[in-house]
Amino acid sequence: MNRLLLSEVYKLSTTKVWWALLIPVAVIAFVLGLAGAAIAGLSTVVEDAGLTPALALTMPISMEQTTVFAAVVGLIGGAGEFRHRTITTTYLTGVSRGSVLAAKAIVHAGLGLVYGVVTAVFCAAGALLNSGTDSFPSTTDTLAVAAAGVVGVMAWCVLGVGIGVLITNQIAVLIVVLVYLLFVEGLIGLLVGTVLGADELPRYLPGAGSTALQTAHGITVFANAFGDEAFGVHDVVEGLVGSSGQLSWWGGGLLIAAYTAAFLAAGWYVGGRRDIT
């Protein structure tokens, strides 16, 4: 297994995708952190309470953006070998197809960790650059928000591998997953949730799961800074940053973990029986 892990690390490190997509991730996180802190500075005009903990919102938002990139890297990691037909050699040199998939999943979890940590660092750096630590929530909350965000990014990177190995057509899988994440899931929320009235359903979709995991705690921290639940700040922010009526952070975490496990299992089952011709 160690051999296959090392092999997958080499495979990643000898291609450009992983760092090419890490650049926009870092830039977006930095800009969001910077802008969030700047907007937070404006609120001092209205409030006497000092700066609001804007990082509690910009960090989760950055993580949501990074999640899309991590999903793309994961999908390429899973389907890329089929696209370039290197999967033949990979299966010829791997102990088993299952162990190859496991190695890919583990290495991409690690890559997701890198993406998440880079996001957290650059977002915090942006905020720090603008207004010092004034827009930071407490250290514990900052770390909690960052950790939840990183776990969501990791989950989607691994989920991408599972979907990629399951479907194998890299172009198709990228288009489908990106369109789904960026448009379809929101549309389903609108259609099913609002029009059909089944507003319980959208929160159990995979995108909503990771969003809940990544944003729930930050939204609570941010809303609590206003001190008064009567304003309904929490619900308003939740509608803007996360999704209305979303699960708690741990509920979302369990949900996205379940999706990841399900797609990995499907990739393992289907991929293990597939004829490589």
Binding site: R3, L4, L6, S7, V9, Y10, K11, T14, T15, K16, G80, H84, T86, T89, T90, T93, G94
Partner: peptide
């Protein structure tokens, strides 16, 4: 082979495996 990898990199991946 992956078009972006050189022969040595390609072989290193599988030597590791």
């Amino acid at each position: 082979f992956h078009p972006g990898r050189g022969a040595r990199d390609h072989l290193r991946c599988y030597a590791a495996a």
